[in-house]
Amino acid sequence: MSAYEAQSSSEHLLEVKNLTTRFYTEDGVVYAVNGISYTMDEGDTLGVVGESGCGKSVHALSMMRLIPIPPGKIEAGEVLLRGRDLLKLSEEEMRHVRGAQLAMIFQDPMTSLNPVLTVGFQIMEALKLHQGMSDHEARARATELLEMVGIPEASLRLDDYPHQFSGGMRQRAMIAMGLSCNPMILIADEPTTALDVTIQAQIMDLVKRLRDKLGMAIIWITHDLGVVAGLAQRVNVMYAGSLIETGPVKEIYGNPHHPYTAGLLGSLPRPDDPPGTKLFSIKGEPPDLLGLPKGCPFAPRCTYAVERCFHEAPTLEPTEPGHLVACWEKERVEKIQ
């Protein structure tokens, strides 16, 4: 490998190549993530959108190597973090990546904190593990972190248990925990879904503020298109375990090329719609990941589908710079849109 190649492979912060995860269950093989590839650079915020069960979370857990094995199995692919393939690391090496370089926060703050350990202990744990801090140092840093995420009287609240925190405060504590070791990438798996709308807005503001201050990259997984619009620079749209469209957020929202993305955006209610306007919905159900149809997974629900879509799976092709779509009929979709 030449010096140039070595550099080029490590030029992105994160490079996911052909990530493929399956679950071998008693009912059959679940094709959860089917060969997705994308890249991210320092300080990027990537939104990952799609319906429930489209593989958004499994793709994130696969990168963290946290899917249960068995029944799960990462079949193929590479996850290059600064050029280092996480999927090839030993479990021991991977442990030093988790929490330190790649941190994750989860959907439901009510269940993702351990009820029998204090919030402070749970934050300090990672600090002591990855940064070798003493109890005293870790405590001081944990206080700082809780203050940073806006929890008043932080030094006192460290000794509280999760049930003494409200939902919003727990998610703040989770964010503090995720950011404790200054990770390169924070993966947020629907972190606002379980919260009230007002609290959602507060958490979003907090994350934006922290991103600008700390400069970490964020992968924000959500099914809420509005959230992504306000936060991300790039969007990955996933459907049935595949990445079907990716591009800058303005491109995706203003100029969607995939019928599914267009359908998703079309199903958002608009403030200027007259009262009584029926909401648009995409017909049909997302496919059962147990037995994926041949060809494009969206074809059975797609109004643009042609013969070819049912036989041959489309690959991601660029339409504009940085905007890639997996659709055979993308030109036609674009025209009609």
């Binding site: 946290l66 988790r98 929490g99 330190a100 989860f106 593990l129 925990m177």
Partner: peptide, 22 residues
Amino acid sequence: RQDYITTARSKGLAEKVVIMRH
């Protein structure tokens, strides 16, 4: 199977610590 176990693992804790402590 609880979420907080995934949280504990995502912090990079050793499996032994996850089981005994969490």
